[in-house]
Computed example of a mutant assay.
Amino acid sequence: MIQSDATFGGTFAFAPYFTDAPAFRMHFVDEGPRDGAVVLCLHGEPTWGYLFRHLIPVLSATHRVIVPDHMGFGKSETPATRSYWLQDHIDNLEKLVLGLDLTNITLVMHDFGGPVGMGLAARHPDRIRRFVSTNGPTPFGQADLLARVTGNAAVSPWFRWIAQAEAEGNLEAVLGQLSFNILSTLKLNGFENNAIITDDWLAAYGAAFASPAECLGAIGWAKGFAIGAHRFEAPDAAAARAIRRRPALAIWGDADRTLHAAQFLPLFDAVFPGARVHRLAGVGHYCLEDAPEIVNPLISAFLSQT
Results as ranks from 00 to 15, higher is better:
A173T: 12
Q164R: 15
A154D: 03
G169I: 01
F191K: 06
L178G: 00
A154P: 07
A163I: 06
K187A: 09
A173C: 06
V174M: 04
F191Y: 10
L186I: 00
E168Y: 10
A154Y: 06
N189P: 05
W158K: 04
L178C: 04
L188T: 09
L188Y: 09
A154T: 03
N170S: 13
L171Y: 04
R160E: 08
Q164K: 15
F159A: 03
N181D: 13
F159P: 01
A173Y: 05
Q164A: 15
R148G: 02
W158S: 05
R160S: 04
N170F: 15
W158G: 03
Q177R: 15
P157E: 06
N152H: 08
L175N: 03
A154Q: 05
F191W: 08
F191N: 05
G169Y: 08
A163H: 10
E166T: 15
V149M: 13
G151I: 04
N181R: 11
L186T: 00
A147V: 10
T150L: 10
I162T: 08
L183G: 00
W158M: 09
Q164V: 12
S184P: 09
N152P: 04
F159W: 07
I162K: 00
L183H: 08
N181S: 07
V149K: 05
L183A: 13
A163K: 01
G176A: 01
W161I: 11
L183F: 14
A153I: 08
K187T: 13
L178Q: 00
G190L: 03
Q177I: 05
T150A: 13
G169N: 05
I182W: 01
A154R: 08
S184A: 15
K187D: 11
T150S: 07
I182E: 01
E166Y: 13
L175W: 02
V174G: 01
V174W: 01
W158T: 03
V174L: 10
P157W: 03
V149P: 03
R160D: 07
S156N: 00
L146H: 12
T185G: 04
